[in-house]
Design a protein around this nucleic acid. Structure first.
Length: 423
RNA sequence: AGAGAGGUGUCUGAGUGGUUGAAAGAGCUAGCCUGGAAAGCUAGUAUAUGGGCAACUGUAUCGAGGGUUCGAAUCCCUUCCUCUCUGCCA
């Protein structure tokens, strides 16, 4: 959530920045500023009224103590109108604050200066590309055929148990998946991230904290009996560990990593691009989350990009990095790099990681702050990235490493899998 | 899930209607003392938000939300959480 004080003082800047998201924010910014002004004026009036009645109450207390009940009764009469007035003003201030909040929820984060102009994924900027695209043998197949051939992932079985998008991993497929999780976690902890295991269901406050609510309400599975949401990403529980927390400056940066399953309803998506592992309702992901000093957050973002790069280099997968354009960027992000692996058999790029700096957007909702050298509290910056999302990495490996003899396991994974080929 | 007890500041812990944002102690910070440290002494030590250049100051907050009252940490209701016992269970 954007800070109202910032919007108030930088209206033109906010409108200009949001234009990069192809959004005309003129009206809403004006509304928000007007609401805020009205709210503050009402609050001042309310505060003054309350101040007056507080004073009277104190006087009444003193009079009662000294036994001057008659005098106290006179003062009591005076408070009646003040009470009515403050009730009215309080209700008005609350209503204005609520309206303001709802409006603020609709405003996405301001894109950083580095974000390229653009409307669609085609406008994303290729920032980096590396790795050779392998030349596959004649009968190369997409992963959805490969997994059947080697009987390592069973989509039908998942359909039977749950429904579409909930596959069953079997045998070497399950082992490979587990190997990837362990490998990713080991890479992350070696890079200084602290491994945590977190709940897979979160409450409403956590959903609001990281910005999934109210923006993506329909995208999360909701257990209505207990009013809990299945996490769409580990980002939600991991970042919310720091909701309402004030860190000391020397505790920064905070680095955490977690493996969790992720649950996404993916309402409205269908077609060839969602075949096989390309889009699932439940998938595994290892996430990295950082809390940074504002001065350091973009350096940290670069560091995260380098870290994910290294993993893909070790896996020897051809990949590229996109700097997302204003139109394709997530609601809460200020700058996002997407990683895509090239699937030779599908002849297309598959998104496998998204690394973002949220600046203070999440911290403002979370009330995640640190104390600066002057002892003042400041909003921290939050960042996160996938390192990595499993299914598409798996798809990339299956498709790019296929040979007539079977699927060769990338070398770095062999000590985790205990086998070097799926045949 | 049922019965009981409880949730107070960084921590321990007092406070059952009246100048209580909150005793006391610990911790922490600064100063004094010391060759240095400990001890001792002195002062300071929540957050949010409004006003003010600032000093300063208004308001709100004692798990959360609502209510009673001139006045609530204290009384009432709802809700969440913790502990003990019983039940169930990986």
């Amino acid at each position: 959530m954007l800070q109202i004080a910032f919007i108030r003082e930088n209206q033109a800047k906010v409108i200009q920045a949001l234009a990069k998201r192809n959004m005309d924010a003129t009206t809403i910014v004006e509304e928000v500023v007007a609401l805020d002004e009205n709210r503050r004026a009402t609050q001042v009036e309310l505060d003054n009224t309350l101040s007056e009645s507080n004073k009277l109450s104190k006087d009444i207390g003193i009079l009662m103590k000294s036994g001057e009940k008659a005098k106290a009764d006179i003062l009591k009469l005076k408070t009646v109108s003040l009470k009515e007035k403050s009730k009215e003003l309080g209700e008005k201030a609350d209503a204005l604050a609520e309206e303001l909040l709802q409006k603020l929820y609709t405003l996405p984060n301001l894109p950083s200066d580095l974000v390229p102009e653009g409307k669609t994924p085609e406008d994303n900027e290729v920032a980096f590309e590396e790795g050779e695209i392998p030349v596959l043998h004649e009968n190369a197949q997409p992963h959805w055929d490969l997994v059947k051939k080697y009987d390592i992932i069973d989509f039908e079985l998942g359909n039977k148990i749950t429904g579409a998008g909930f596959p069953v991993y079997k045998g070497k497929g399950a082992k490979l998946q587990r190997a990837l999780i362990n490998y990713f976690l080991d890479k992350n902890t070696a890079a200084g991230y602290n491994e945590v295991q977190v709940p897979h269901l979160v409450n409403e406050a956590s959903g609001y904290g990281t910005g999934q609510l109210p923006d993506k309400e329909g995208q999360m599975y909701h257990s209505t009996v207990d009013d809990l949401y299945l996490i769409p990403t580990a980002e939600v529980p991991v970042t919310n560990m720091y909701r309402d927390v004030i860190l000391s400056e020397k505790e920064l940066p905070v680095l955490n990593t977690a493996y969790t399953p992720c649950f996404r309803r993916e309402a409205g998506s269908y077609g060839a691009h969602v075949r096989g592992l390309n889009r699932l309702h439940q998938f595994d992901k290892v996430e990295i989350v950082r809390i940074e000093h504002p001065d350091n957050s973009y350096k940290a973002l670069d560091g995260m990009v380098e870290h994910v790069k290294e993993i893909l280099q070790e896996l020897k997968l051809p990949y590229r990095i996109l700097r997302l354009c204003g139109g394709d960027m997530g609601f809460t992000s200020a700058l996002t790099y997407d990683f895509e692996v090239f699937s030779t058999a599908q002849d297309r790029w598959l998104e496998i990681s998204s690394v973002s700096n949220f600046e203070t957007f999440q911290a403002n909702r979370l009330k995640l702050r640190y104390r600066d050298e002057n002892g003042k509290t400041q909003l921290a910056h939050t960042l996160n990235g996938s390192s990595l999302a499993l299914p598409r990495v798996l798809a990339g490996i299956l498709e790019n490493y296929q040979t007539p003899e079977g699927i060769v396991i990338p070398e770095v994974l062999r000590k985790y899998t205990g086998f070097d080929i799926i045949d």
